[in-house]
Design a protein around this nucleic acid. Structure first.
Length: 876
RNA sequence: GAGAUAUUAGCUCAGUUGGUUUAGAGCACUACCUUGACAGGGUAGGGGUCACUGGUUCGAGUCCAGUAUGUCUCACCA
């Protein structure tokens, strides 16, 4: 006997291993149409979180559906080396072992890092398997493995030779904790509480003070000017004067620059060209010195001259105190300002002048912008196009060097101030020799820095197919079918992949991009470690089953919209699993008898199910084309729960202890199997299990590779007849409820004879189904409009339930009158349209016809209601 | 500061070029129902002047303008 509860843990591992053994996930190029997806590679340091679950569930649904559609489905998995995150993790691990990074050589450090990667780097991929991800694991790629590394180096050299990559000194975002440069995209700005200090700068040779407002007194030692607006009358007398930098006692010029906002603070701005992007620009315009007051770890430098070696925030307080003690602070006030923090380390980003490598983005952005604007790369949802365009049109050069060891080392070799870019040291050497004939390999010093991680992941759709080496797989799988990713990395990753696609392949990397929303908690807060509002993904799978969790995520994630996650969603998924499971129990328990032949009702029920399934397949098909996966899932959900379980199974279910016709059971198994196929992409485990419990299958006849039910034409009239039968049964049940008549008491029902009702009655099996589901003694027709009993309307058909009503006549009257008022309002609005000359002459004929039908139906219902009201009033 | 986008039932969302019976779903809610697949269940029911104000149109949840509120992107003032 099958258990009354579905237990996912008993079947999930079994089927995942089976699929793996059968190599269903593996793909090789062949004559079929390809359908390929490259995974957004998670960080090797990552553990499965809700974002991954959502994102990968969607990819798995798409890939499983494509596989069942007969395409050659290939989902390439892999991980990303995540320079900063991984290096930080390894440094931390070493610290726990009592080893300092500074004590190791680069080679020694990398040895530890690789060791760490081998040990922990595959965790997230194993977790994806628990979710059911049908990736082609034989293709698992890593951004730092040989093939991917070769691609990175080739691309770097290629861009350099094409003049699209250069080395330059710029103001960069510096992360003092990771001691590396960050790109703009890796800096997160947020409002923070701080203090605004009004500091007195004495004008040289006078007792006058110029008040300057600053939030960063610790940078005062780096001041090389004070700027005011040229039109500011308060300061025009200071032309040509100098002011004394407080406590530092250095005289710096007062300069005039329109950048200064007269309204802000005191209208005077201290200029620190080494530590502020705008100040740097001002500095260039006025030929100011730059004094770097910080070390690379955010402590004060010796040039600063104050508190050398102490942290910038400690010094902020100390120095402010010193200023105050010297009477140089006019006042301080609380202030909110925008502070940039490192996405990775969360430390406050320090603008810093430094020499780095850049990609000239304007040189490669053009085709990538056009491709998206012309929908050659199609975005879902569409509104992401605007955001993309804005960024692409204002694109800035990409700083790609990082002061780390874990990553692809920059292929540039230095000789004094000169350098050579080449794929290998040998090539670099031979290039160097052309300029310096006596140079030896040992004279060349390779750049110490590595490349930004995104510089390898932007090649991902090409590099996973070895596109920089061979054509075979590229020609088959590229462009990939769809990219599924979060919109938060549209610039960091998506835009750059598109650029790389056009730069090296001259083609888009994917046909579609499906942007998923962010996973938030039910209060709309982003899931985060610090809030502790992120559920443990694996625990969820354990609690609700992978299918339950997948259902939970998908049932409520509109295309591109945020997912407001709640355990209850998974609970609903688990309950759904249980519902299907119990339908299986029911069907499995049916006993057949060869001497029993199927009734007309059973035949009608089966026909209805088949047509309905085709109808639902059409809806699913349309929804898939638009990536409306939630809607697709919901139509399957209602089809299974309502149509199949609540109606169909009740229609064909034999009476207690009775046996059924063999063909009815076989038909039910067939429908159930097709239901498994429909649902399989969303809930792969339970569907595979049921597929096999339903009946013994031949070797290799598995749900995962069954044919996905196709859209097609279906008999709408037949479906409508059964639907009306359902509606009438519901109406009867309502009257039972309201009049306290139990389900097991048999009652009689009459339909008022009309063309439509006679047609229903003559449909083979129709009456039988009504009798069975309504638990009726009989159902027939009458021409008596005033038949005694309780009446209701289904569509335009009047039905009489032949009972002595126990319900209050007043209540019944009130309900009928309310209904009549509604119908009157309806009829009036339709009539208003039809009485309007311009509508009748202006609107399309079909629309007018429709309105006429609406009017006729409305009038019919009014008539039926009025009759009923008159009858009830007589009873008063 | 600039731009985008949204506002439909208690909550989360559909509503596809304006006309599909004066708006649909899921969840939540209410009443009734437990020996016969399933209480992780069944049957039925209630609930919305489609943010607001105007406009276009024979006709507006759907198109246009403005207002309010929210969200996002980009840029940032010390």
């Amino acid at each position: 006997m099958i258990s009354s509860r579905y237990t996912p843990s008993e079947v999930e591992n079994k089927w995942y291993s089976h699929w793996m053994d059968k190599k269903y996930f593996h793909s090789e190029p062949d004559s079929r149409e390809p359908y390929s997806i490259v995974i957004p590679p998670p960080n090797v340091t990552g553990v499965l979180h809700m974002g991954h679950m959502l994102n990968n569930t969607i990819q798995d649904i798409l890939i499983r559906k494509a596989r069942m559609d007969g395409k050659n489905a290939c989902w390439v998995p892999g991980t990303d080396h995540a320079s900063i995150a991984t290096e930080a993790k390894v440094v931390k691990m070493l610290r726990e072992k009592g080893i300092r990074k500074g004590d190791l050589s680069r080679e020694q450090f990398l040895e530890y890092a690789w060791e760490w990667k081998e040990k922990y780097g595959g965790i997230i991929l194993e977790q994806l398997q628990k979710l059911g991800a049908s990736c082609d694991w034989e293709r698992t790629a890593f951004t730092m493995d040989e093939s991917r590394s070769d691609a990175v180096i080739k691309v770097f050299v290629d861009l350099y030779r094409k003049g699209k990559l250069y080395r330059g000194k710029r103001m960069v975002n510096w992360d003092p904790e990771a001691r590396t440069v960050l790109s703009n995209e890796e800096v997160i700005y947020g409002l923070e509480q701080s203090r605004l200090y009004h500091v007195k700068y004495r004008v040289e040779g006078s007792d006058e003070y110029l008040i300057v407002a600053t939030t960063r007194p610790e940078t005062i030692p780096g001041d090389t000017a004070v700027a005011v607006h040229p039109d500011d009358p308060r300061y025009s007398h200071l032309a040509g004067k100098k002011v004394i930098v407080p406590l530092i006692n250095r005289a710096v010029p007062v300069i005039f620059d329109t950048y200064v906002d007269m309204e802000f603070g005191t209208g005077a701005l201290k200029v620190t060209p080494a530590h502020d992007v705008n100040d740097y620009e001002i500095g260039k315009r006025h030929n100011l010195d730059t004094i770097d007051v910080f070390n690379e770890d955010g402590t004060m430098s010796t040039e600063a001259g104050i508190y050398p070696g102490e942290d910038r925030f400690v010094v902020r307080k100390k120095f402010a105190k010193d200023l105050d003690a010297a009477g140089l602070v006019e006042k301080t006030e609380d202030y909110q300002n925008n502070v940039g923090r490192s996405e990775r380390t969360n430390s406050v980003v320090e603008p810093r002048l430094s020499l780095q490598w850049y990609v000239d983005m304007k040189a490669i952005a053009g085709p990538a912008l056009e491709a998206v604007m012309k929908d050659e790369v199609d975005f879902y949802p569409k509104n992401q196009k605007n955001i993309y365009r804005h960024w692409m049109e204002n694109i800035r050069d990409w700083c790609i060097s990082r002061q780390l060891w874990w990553g692809h080392r920059i292929p540039a070799w230095y000789l004094g101030d000169d350098f050579f870019v080449a794929e290998t040291i040998d090539e670099a050497l031979s290039e160097a020799k052309q300029k310096y004939p006596d140079v030896k390999a040992s004279d060349l010093r390779q750049d110490e820095d590595v490349l930004d991680t995104w510089f390898s992941s932007w090649l991902w759709p090409i590099s996973v197919f070895h596109g920089f080496k061979t054509r075979e797989e590229m020609d088959y799988y590229y462009p990939t079918s769809v990219l599924v990713t979060g919109w938060d990395i549209i610039f960091l990753w998506v835009a750059r992949m598109i650029m790389a696609g056009y730069e090296w392949e001259g083609k888009r990397p994917f046909d579609h991009v499906y942007f998923t929303g962010m996973v938030r908690d039910k209060l709309r807060r982003k899931m985060s470690k610090s809030l502790g509002n992120s559920p443990d993904a694996l625990q969820l799978i354990e609690d609700f089953g992978a299918d339950g969790v997948r259902f939970g995520m998908m049932s409520c994630s509109p295309a591109g919209g945020d997912l407001l996650f709640d355990d209850k969603l998974c609970e609903q998924g688990r309950n759904f699993s249980n519902k299907i499971w119990n339908a299986l129990r029911l069907v499995d328990g049916w006993e057949t008898d060869p001497s029993v032949s199927p009734s007309a009702g059973e035949k009608l029920a089966f026909e209805w199910m088949q047509h309905k399934l085709t109808q639902v397949s059409g809806e699913i098909d349309r929804n898939f084309q638009e990536y409306r996966l939630s809607e697709a899932l919901m139509s399957i959900y209602t089809f299974i729960w309502d149509d199949f379980c609540s109606w169909y199974l009740e229609m064909v279910k034999p009476a207690f202890g009775q046996k059924m016709a063999e063909s009815t059971k076989q038909n039910t198994i067939e429908i159930f199997s097709r239901i498994c196929s429909l649902l399989h992409p969303f809930m792969p485990f339970i569907t595979e299990e049921i597929w096999h419990v339903l009946q013994v299958r031949k070797e290799g006849d598995d749900c995962i590779i069954s044919l996905y039910p196709k859209a097609g034409t279906y008999d709408q009239a037949l479906v409508a007849m059964v639907e009306q039968g359902k509606d009438i049964v519901s109406g009867i049940r309502d009257i039972r409820n309201k009049n306290g008549i139990k389900m097991k008491d048999e009652i009689d029902v009459l339909l008022l004879s009309t063309e439509r009702s006679e047609k229903l009655m003559h449909q083979a099996g129709w009456k039988e189904l009504c009798i069975k589901l309504g638990n009726l003694n009989s159902i027939g027709s009458t021409i008596d409009e005033n038949t005694e009993g309780v009446a209701f309307i289904s569509g335009t058909e009047k039905c009489f339930v032949l009972i002595q009503s126990e319900a209050n006549v007043d209540d019944q009257l009130e309900e009928k009158k309310r209904e009549l008022t509604y119908q009157q309002g309806f009829v009036q609005s339709v009539r208003a349209k039809l009485e309007n000359e311009r509508f009748v002459s202006g609107a399309p004929a079909a629309v007018v016809e429709k309105e006429r039908a609406k009017l006729a139906d409305g009038l019919e219902r009014m008539k039926l209601l009025e009759e009923d009201i008159a009858r009830l009033e007589k009873l008063l």
